[in-house]
């Protein structure tokens, strides 16, 4: 059961670091494709930063909801979109890497989050079957 946000974040980070190491390996083995692997690695780092930022915001949201005070900062998509934009601009404009590879790297962390969440949900439904009335125990 994965009801713990830090545990989920740790798993997502582990998957992102795995893809990052694959990118480093590709960077070292295929020097002619360095713009592709470099863009991919920057995208993975950007996606991971987005996930960490989102988790931090959610913890802040929980604290604010429990204490009853207004959260200091917003929870919108803008800051995370800016992180993705920053990764794209650094990768493509500054370091002259491949844009499609950067896009692929950016969606690694959200896809990992989604897959881990679906796996956890299916495990949870297997652990707690419903009775004949459809209610969970």
């Amino acid at each position: 059961m994965m009801d713990d946000l830090p545990a989920l974040l740790k798993r997502v980070s582990r998957i992102a670091f795995f893809f990052l190491s694959m990118g480093c390996l590709g960077w070292a083995v295929w020097p002619e494709l360095r713009n592709v692997f470099g863009g991919f690695m920057i995208g993975v780092v950007g996606g991971l930063a987005i996930s960490w930022h989102l988790a931090w915001k959610l913890v802040q949201l929980g604290n604010a909801a429990i204490s009853g005070r207004k959260p200091r900062s917003g929870l919108g998509f803008l800051s995370r979109a800016c992180l993705g934009l920053l990764a794209g601009v650094i990768s493509v404009r500054v370091l002259d890497f491949n844009l499609a590879a950067t896009a692929t790297g950016l969606i690694v962390s959200p896809m990992a989050t989604l897959l881990l969440g679906l796996v956890a949900r299916s495990r949870r439904s297997d652990d707690h079957p419903t009775d004949e009335r459809g209610e969970k125990h």
Partner: peptide, 26 residues
């Protein structure tokens, strides 16, 4: 804890599409 984790998964699902659209826009 459970609500935060569910929200994290949901937002990950919701925000995958606009991140892709951001890069497509580029």
């Amino acid at each position: 804890g459970a609500l935060q984790t569910t929200a994290f998964i949901g937002v990950g699902l919701v925000e995958a599409l606009p991140i892709i659209s951001l890069v497509l826009a580029f």
